[in-house]
Design a protein around this nucleic acid. Structure first.
Lengths: 109, 109
DNA sequence: AGTAAATATTGAGGGTTATCAATACTTCAA
DNA sequence: TTGAAGTATTGATAACCCTCAATATTTACT
């Protein structure tokens, strides 16, 4: 029969970090959202506009992706709390959520 | 026969962002690396040590993952330029690469 | 109501990757 | 050289998700 694998013995418990497990998963989720070139480019594009906002339809051509794919990325970013959306007439305008970006910066410092 | 789909017509070209496409992909890759709770926790743990370093073996129990999985995550972070590794005797010590984190912060500001 | 444009959803296909067990490699000490 | 501990690799499985075509929904205008 098999004996249980011995556990490595070199290892006192580590000091745990600043982040709670819950925030850790939340932050990881945002990083995963930004870990997609199309979405990072999207963030980059919004930040580059003097109006600080974009219409969804403007992004299709710029990103070189299909309209459903762009819509998908916007939804993912919206649900991660990275974007706000506002309907004005026919169009929907997206803006960055500065606090969310600040949260990420603080994790990295 | 099918006519080509018309392209949405509302959309003047957008101002492009600050980042070149190449850096954009590089940064997205790092974000994707951090978009994994185990790896973000790892970063968090290293930063919490007064020595600013950890031995690989210390992480197995702390993260609650198998040794091969921890080794895999360390390799991924190392190859993304987020960690340095140094062998001292039996153990391998990992440290954060501050410049890499600073690069990410700058993208988010 | 009916049409056109903008946006969202659904479903399918294909690539990426987290995870583990098993195994191999490396280093030190006896 | 042999054993033990730390670390890395391989191979397999399963989950995740990007992308698109097709279609549906929403809005404004006539």
């Amino acid at each position: 029969m098999n004996l249980p694998k011995p556990i490595p013995s070199c290892c006192p418990p580590l000091l745990s970090g600043r982040l709670e497990l819950e925030e850790l998963h939340d932050v990881a989720r945002i990083f995963r959202v930004l870990g997609e070139p199309a979405r990072l480019q999207l963030l980059n594009l919004i930040a580059a506009q003097s109006s600080q906002e974009v219409r969804a339809c403007e992004l299709v051509e710029t990103l070189g992706l299909s309209q459903p794919t762009v819509s998908h990325h916007l939804k993912v970013m919206y649900e991660a709390g990275l974007l706000t959306k506002e309907r004005r007439g026919t169009w929907i305008y997206y803006r960055l959520v500065a606090e969310r970006l600040a949260q990420l910066r603080s994790v990295l410092s």
